[in-house]
């Protein structure tokens, strides 16, 4: 019917970026399962997939009572040794019989939640994207806990270079003519709705994780630029406040780095409108200009004092 997921993204709670061996330990959430690591074009580490059992109502725009039983797939990712994510998704399918079966039945179809009774995919999608009421499936809470697993690792020093809220991106994919719609809700909530002609593959979840990552980067850089108070605060002060952005964020922008070739057009269309990369580049230039300007000022002051001393 449809697939829904939620990705939470945060600054990894460590003073500097962490290296691959530490990443492997932080993300080694299951005995005997390897952490998948790719190094090009940017370091990206992915924990094993873990399952969580659920038996509850699904959010529905029309408030219909729709019960689903099954398992949610979750994992953690760390990109560039710096940004952590907790991600969960579930494939919603119609059950063959309208009563709850033994649990082993659901475990034979990992990542699927079976709907007991009737439900409309569009209704569920809209209900989920609107934000679920308390007694409904809560993918956000699951993703949040997975993110906590990484963030609370004793291997991290918890001295992050700046404080920043997590962002959450809820997504839904359905089968249909290719389309993508990205919506900003509150400061921290975003939604993505994707139609894809082929049946669901985990690559779509990876696409959404990549979108969430870049949206977080953009959101965070905007906050840092605002906090720096360019123009109102003295140049040196603004530059100092921008330093963490230069040190920790600017090199992380790599849209689509871990997204399969066939899904690249989704990223490309978002880059045309609203133009994520364009906005990022503009901000990046602004940050670099400010820092450069400050360096120039410092240099000229040093030069002047130097002349006076001579």
């Amino acid at each position: 019917m449809l697939v829904m997921g939620e990705v939470h993204t945060a600054l990894l709670q460590n003073s500097g970026e962490i290296q691959e061996p530490v990443c492997r330990q932080v993300l080694g959430l299951m005995a005997g399962e390897t952490v998948r690591v790719s190094r090009r074009p940017i370091a990206h580490a992915l924990s094993p997939d873990l399952l969580t059992g659920v038996d509850c109502r699904l959010p529905s725009a029309s408030q219909a009572r729709v019960r689903a039983v099954g398992t949610v797939v979750s994992r953690c990712a760390i990109t560039g040794g710096r940004v952590a994510q907790g991600s969960s998704y579930v494939r919603v399918e119609r059950a063959a019989v309208d009563r709850r079966l033994s649990w082993s039945h659901y475990l034979s179809r990992p990542g699927v939640a079976e709907v007991l009774g009737k439900a409309k995919a569009g209704d569920l999608a809209a209900g989920f994207l609107d934000g679920a009421p308390p007694d409904c499936l809560d993918l956000g809470a699951i993703s949040g806990r997975f993110l906590d697993l990484a963030q609370s690792s004793p291997l991290l020093d918890r001295r992050a270079p700046f404080r920043i809220p997590r962002t959450r991106l809820r997504w839904v994919t359905e089968v249909g003519e290719p389309s993508i719609r990205f919506t900003l809700h509150s400061d921290q909530v975003r939604t993505v709705r994707i139609a894809h002609p082929e049946p669901f593959t985990p690559a779509l979840a990876a696409l959404c994780e990549d979108l969430a990552l870049h949206d977080w980067l953009l959101t965070t850089l905007l906050v840092l630029v605002e906090r720096a108070g360019i123009g109102s605060a003295p140049g040196a002060q603004a530059a100092a406040k921008l330093a963490p952005a230069v040190d920790h964020l600017l090199h992380l922008w790599m849209p689509g780095a871990h997204v399969g070739e066939s899904l690249a057009p989704y990223w490309e269309s978002l880059d045309r409108r609203p133009g994520f990369t364009r906005q990022w580049r503009t901000l990046e230039d602004r940050v670099r200009d400010q820092v450069a300007l400050n360096t120039l000022t410092l240099l000229s002051i040093t030069a002047q004092t130097g002349r006076r001393c001579q």
Partner: peptide
């Protein structure tokens, strides 16, 4: 330990995922 790590608890009705099992 491998098997223990793969246990996924049978959820009672009303399990939304909002809290850990």
């Amino acid at each position: 330990r491998l098997v223990e790590g793969r246990l996924v608890d049978d959820p009672p009705p009303g399990t939304t995922g909002s809290r850990p099992p």
